[in-house]
């Protein structure tokens, strides 16, 4: 059975302190509990969380939904998005099973990135590593007005923006992520057509703006 790896890259820099970080934690929790009652996601989806502030760390290694435990993280420091992308590339190498002539590997991973500010490290170095790997859909979300959507466009074509980084908006974003993972796990299960672009996903809620 091919697995569908899903990586969440979450900004835990100081600017996320307070309501935003709590909303993100809550969002992850709701995401997991929603997917746990979806038979398609339970069959195929595996989830990992990478957080980034002054450095990047994988707080939850790629694991099946039923065994996922809510990670704890606090907001502080700056925004090492470049390092987070390099870490993602590294984890994909070790955690995602590659298809060989003898083994059916995993589906290409889905990636959801959420950040509220400009990267403070060398983003291009991270992007270079990131681009060497194959991904399914990559969605970058600019939470609030502090994040630069042009910067995120360098990572992926699928960029969405939240007008504000309050709890209701962040909650809506995670709800959409969970619907996207559901759709993604049905598509790979069924059609063998992997989700690669925003047009394939369920329509985002009004709080999430697609940046074109």
């Amino acid at each position: 059975m091919r697995r569908l790896p899903v990586y969440l890259l979450l900004d835990t820099s100081g600017s996320m302190f307070g309501e935003p970080i709590e909303a993100v934690k809550n969002g992850v929790q709701v995401l997991v509990s929603t997917l746990r009652s979806d038979p398609y996601a339970l069959e195929t989806a595996y989830l990992s969380v990478i957080t980034f502030n002054s450095s990047a760390q994988q707080v939850t290694p790629l694991i099946e939904l039923s065994a996922f435990q809510q990670p704890n993280f606090e907001a502080s420091g700056c925004t090492a998005l470049g390092e987070a992308l390099a870490l993602l590339a590294n984890k994909v190498d070790t955690e995602v099973v590659k298809t060989t002539v003898d083994v059916k590997g995993d589906w290409k991973p889905l990636v959801f990135i959420m950040t509220d500010g400009e990267p403070t490290d060398d983003l291009n170095k991270g992007i270079a590593e990131f681009k060497k790997r194959k991904f399914g859909m990559v969605v970058a979300c600019a939470a609030g007005q502090g994040a630069n959507t042009d910067t995120l466009k360098k990572i992926t074509e699928c960029v969405v923006q939240l007008d504000t980084a309050d709890s209701a908006t962040i909650k809506a974003f995670f709800k959409w992520v969970s619907a996207s993972v559901s759709t993604g796990s049905q598509k790979v299960e069924d059609a063998g057509v992997e989700v690669t672009g925003l047009s394939e996903l369920p329509p985002p809620p009004p709080e999430v703006n697609i940046v074109v």
Binding site: M1, R2, T99, T100, V101, D102, V103, K104, G105, D106, W107, K108, V188, A191, G192, V193, E194
Partner: peptide, 18 residues
């Protein structure tokens, strides 16, 4: 859905397998 790999690309493999 068995063990045979028909293509190294998962999406193509799936399409051929089915």
């Amino acid at each position: 859905r068995g063990g045979k790999v028909n293509d190294l690309d998962p999406a193509k493999d799936e399409e051929l397998t089915m």
